[in-house]
Design a protein around this nucleic acid. Sequence first.
DNA 1: TCTCCAATTATGTCTGGACAAATAGCCTTA
DNA 2: TAAGGCTATTTGTCCAGACATAATTGGAGA
Lengths: 235, 235
Amino acid sequence: MSDLAPYQRIKDTLLERVHSGLWRPGDSIPGEQQLALDFNCARSTVHRALRELAEEGVLERKRKTGTRVAYPTGRSLALDISLVEDEIKATGASYQYQLLERTLAPLPPTVAAHLNRAPGEEALHLLCLHYADRHPYQFEDRWIDPLTVPEALEEGFDQIGPNPWLLKNVPWTEAEHVISADIATGSVAATLGLKEGEPVLIVERRTWNAKGTVTTVRFHHPGRTHRLRSAFAPR
Amino acid sequence: MSDLAPYQRIKDTLLERVHSGLWRPGDSIPGEQQLALDFNCARSTVHRALRELAEEGVLERKRKTGTRVAYPTGRSLALDISLVEDEIKATGASYQYQLLERTLAPLPPTVAAHLNRAPGEEALHLLCLHYADRHPYQFEDRWIDPLTVPEALEEGFDQIGPNPWLLKNVPWTEAEHVISADIATGSVAATLGLKEGEPVLIVERRTWNAKGTVTTVRFHHPGRTHRLRSAFAPR
DNA sequence: TCTCCAATTATGTCTGGACAAATAGCCTTA
DNA sequence: TAAGGCTATTTGTCCAGACATAATTGGAGA
């Protein structure tokens, strides 16, 4: 308990004061100088504790005015985006990957917009299915931009999924996710083994790196059984 | 450009080297001592830059071994959990709130489990509807534990929604979210103005504070038009 | 009374030096 | 050869002091 780094001990102590309600949102708390005396350490040590708590959204700091307890608003939700394989194996199920289709195809208008290209230009189109214990778990409909990722044209994707391959070969630096719900129809229903009209949870992802848009992908999951979970909290 | 704090300038420079591919995942980068010479500053300044980049998941540091560029795996997705009102107003639409029902009711078994109580015990049950430009935007089905939040029994919730009220009065410290898809049936369909069989996007949230479970809530959104967005990235 | 400037004060950052802790690699010894 | 211990290196943290920067507040002047 007391063998923690001092700055960490201070953070814990202050956080406890906030959580216990001793310091309530909006309250001013003592200045760095005073806290340094209280904790018998240098101001810079207190400063680090306060700075980090402010970054975590617990405190609000302003020059001259001092430090106050932040109002707990504007949280965010953090979902882990792990590889499907890890996600499935974590549940104890067996994982299987199947490539359904791999073509160089002209871009449909909506996808073209996502990749920032003109409709009709060609890109690598992949359809894949991921199984958990032999049951369809995720249907992946992906386009990869061959101008940003020419190496992808050399890869068959019959042994390795696009996601692990991209993670390994083309690290991205930015991404956008959109989550929505729809009902299963046509080929998506058939592929996922669902009846028409059953709910489907869709996660759409676009990723970029310095060179440009890397890939855009739609993951379809059986909606009633699939769940995106997130144990979590502040900021 | 150059009027940034030195530690920030160093962070930017190093991040650029990673993003540009000059330093690739797995590469070792120079030690703090060397970088301090390169940037003509104290080691502690370099240290802060490296420490923060490591916290952000860009670098991996180990004593004796040194610092290397992290493999870009295990990202996470951060969704903003803002108040519905802000969310709607941000799109330029007008916001309206309506309380449909407010009862003290016995807990159904599934909800009881969520609140960590016995089925049949009583809790505050709220049904609310949030409109964007007069169209149903979100149907909220919420239970509040009166043992954890006795003040809620005094509140009518006819003027203020449960979410802003709770944020103001009962700050929580932990939350869990589950996102899923379903199809609209019965009262949910009717309330949201959807036909039976249309897709619904469901976000379920449970929140705790030091005293215990605060509330559990299911938000239902029209699935085809609603979207959870997240511009974002690493860790 | 109103406006604007300057003093005050709290936070933000840097320095340069010190010691602590982890650990890879080597060296000794059984 | 294997086990155990030593050492050099690298990161982790702290400190005390200094200066920079933002922002409130009170006072001087119009």
